[in-house]
Simulated scan of single mutants.
Amino acid sequence: MQSRLSICLYISNHHIAQDLTSILSNKSYSIQLVYSSQELLDLVNSHDVQIDCLVIFRDTTVSPLFNQLYEQGTLLPVVIIEPELDSEVLLEKVGTLTCLYHSAEVRQLVTTLDDIDKSLELAIAQFLRLGPSCSLVKSPVSLPEALVPDKQLSFLLLQQRRLAEKLKERLGYLGVFYKRNPKHFFRNISKIQQEELIKHLTEEYRKIILNYFSNETEINQFIDQFVNKAFFADIAISKILEIHMELIDEFSQQLKIEGRSDEILLDYRLTIIDILAHLGEMYRRSVPRENLYV
C-alpha cells in the first residue's frame, strides 16, 4: 500500500536484525534490510525507493555514515539502537547525549526492542516538527533557522511534506508539519541572530526579484525557501514589506544612476503579492481545523 511506512534497517548485529525484523513484520510497515553503509547510501540515493525512517545499530560505521548523509544534505527520521554495553550509561545520560545525526533522532536501548514501534512513531513525529536550524548539529555555532544550507533545507522540507501526506492518509495526521518551535521565532532569538537572519532573508529576496520574470524554473523553489524560513521564524509581514521596499529603493537608485527609468520596478509588486500569498497559505494550514470556524 502506498500509505505503508517504509522502514530501513541497518543492523550490523545479525541477532538484533532478526529480532527487529520479527517484531516489525507484525506491524503495518514495509521493511528493507541493508547490511553495509554503502548499501544504505545507495538505497537513500535511489529514485525508486523512499525511506520514511531509518533504524540503525550504533557501531563504528555510524558516524562516517551520518557525516556522508549530512554532507549531501540528506535528513531522515532515525532511531539509533544503542549497544547493550552502553545501556546503563545511556540511561544515566539520556538527557545530555550529543546528537549523532540531527536533533530529532531517537535513541533506543537494545534491551527494549519490543517498544521499537513507539520509538519509530516518536522519531517521525519529532522529525516532522524539526525546524530547519535544528538539523545543524555539526555547525560550530548555533545559527537561526534561515541560515541552513539551501540543499539541506530543500531536502528536509520535501521529506517532511511527503511524510506528512503519507501519515495523513494512513493515520489521519493533519498539519503536523506546520507546528513551529517558539524558541526559534525572530522575537526570541538574540540581536545578532536577528541581524543575520534579516541579512540572509534580504539576499534571498534579492535573488527572487532578479529571477522573478526569467524563465528559470527554480524561482518557485526560491520562493518556497524564503517563505518557509520566514514562516518558521515567525517574521512579521511588516518586516517582509520592509525588505521588499528597501530592495526596490536600492534598485531604483541604481537605475537612476545609470540614467534609466525605474517604472519597470512597478511590476515587482507582483513579487511581494506572490510571497505574501504563499506565506498566508502556510499560516492558514497551520491553524487547527477545529479553529477555522470559530
Rank of each mutant, 00 (worst) to 15 (best):
E145T: 14
T217V: 08
Q253W: 00
E84H: 09
K93I: 10
I248K: 10
I23V: 09
Y293W: 12
L24Y: 11
V44A: 04
E121A: 15
I7D: 07
E88Q: 15
Y35C: 03
V141Q: 08
R161P: 00
I192E: 06
G259C: 06
H102R: 08
G73Q: 02
D48G: 05
G95F: 07
Y293A: 03
V89F: 14
S63M: 07
F232M: 08
I16E: 01
C99R: 00
L69A: 02
T217P: 10
V62N: 01
K191F: 04
S261P: 01
Y173S: 13
A123G: 07
S30D: 14
Y101P: 07
I7V: 15
H244S: 13
E290L: 08
H184I: 05
D86H: 13
E92I: 07
L201R: 03
D262K: 05
K256V: 14
V227N: 02
N181P: 01
N67S: 06
E39R: 08
Y205V: 08
Q68K: 10
Q18H: 03
L9G: 14
Q68R: 03
I243S: 02
A164I: 03
D114K: 12
P77L: 09
E121S: 15
S119H: 14
L157M: 08
I248C: 06
G172Y: 01
I243V: 10
N215D: 14
Y70P: 06
S135G: 14
Q253N: 04
L5H: 11
C134W: 13
K151D: 05
V110R: 06
K166M: 07
R4C: 15
L97P: 00
P144W: 12
Q221K: 07
L157I: 12
Q50W: 03
R162C: 10
Q221F: 02
V110T: 13
H47E: 15
Y10T: 00
I124C: 10
D150R: 10
L97G: 00
K183M: 00
L41N: 06
T60S: 06
A164S: 15
R161S: 12
V110K: 01
P77A: 11
V34Q: 04
L43T: 11
R206F: 12
D234S: 13
S252Q: 07
L247G: 11
K118I: 09
I208D: 00
R180E: 10
L171G: 09
Q152K: 11
M245H: 05
V176F: 05
V89Q: 09
C53E: 11
Y268M: 06
E145S: 15
N291W: 11
K118R: 14
L270T: 13
P144F: 12
F186D: 01
V55A: 12
Q38K: 04
L85K: 15
I116C: 11
Y205D: 02
L75Y: 05
L292S: 09
I16C: 00
C134F: 14
H244K: 10
A104N: 04
F186H: 12
